[in-house]
Design a protein around this nucleic acid. Structure first.
Lengths: 110, 110
DNA sequence: TTTGTAGTTCGCAAAACTACGAACAATAAA
DNA sequence: TTTATTGTTCGTAGTTTTGCGAACTACAAA
């Protein structure tokens, strides 16, 4: 039955949710904050900023990489992580557009 | 032992992560998008926009309410939901500040 | 060859998330 | 009083997330 016909989420909503989800953990926000503001960005430096085990840090980094927000590059014996500028700006634009929606509007409740 | 001493997440990072997490599902983005752009905002209208059961919609609404992004008010026999303007603007400011961090910066990788 | 450094991956456990149908509550209408 | 409408809550199931230590990989140095 066509209970849910024609009600798929839009690509944009899916993409924004994906970015938001990646940002939905304080460790990952801390990582992004760190990478966005500093030039030093080796795994060890990141691990040092966080109250969690390196295995867990590695997992969070993987999620951020999967979401496209960061990228990693091997510099034996270290790994250098950085903001993925292109997708960072894409995410920024998504959030900006999203919040702008509400601008200059009198909501039904407040 | 003081393995993780002095490395707690900051309040701001926790709060931003909380907002982001609440936005980390396409259904919840769709709900917020809908509430932010329209004046009609009864539960039934929202449910109608989504490809999921009403029980699930109710749960998503609860999460958005818990994160402070929306508010509900009973208008028997319906329930009217709306953006919580104060926290919406707070969230917007958080994201804006966060992304601005990266502005005019040459990252270590790109 | 053994040792050390820097990270990743594996295997596991606990908790949280997502989703549903059924049952329920509260009011209004017949 | 019975029935209908509008949502919420409950109970359950399956999946995903978060976290850890241990094991592993890759390379360099001793």
């Amino acid at each position: 039955m066509d209970k849910y016909k024609n009600k798929d989420y839009t690509i944009d909503n899916e993409q924004l949710a994906r970015f938001a989800k990646a940002m939905g953990h304080p460790a990952r926000i801390t990582i992004l904050h760190y990478l966005a503001s500093l030039d030093s960005c080796y795994f060890g430096d990141i691990h040092n900023e966080l109250p969690i085990a390196k295995a867990t840090v590695s997992q969070h980094l993987k999620e951020l990489k999967d979401a496209g927000l960061i990228q990693g590059e091997i510099e034996t014996p270290k790994v250098k992580y950085c903001i993925n500028r292109e997708n960072w700006e894409k995410a920024q634009a998504y959030f900006e557009t999203f919040f702008a929606l509400r601008k200059e509007k009198t909501s039904c409740c407040n």
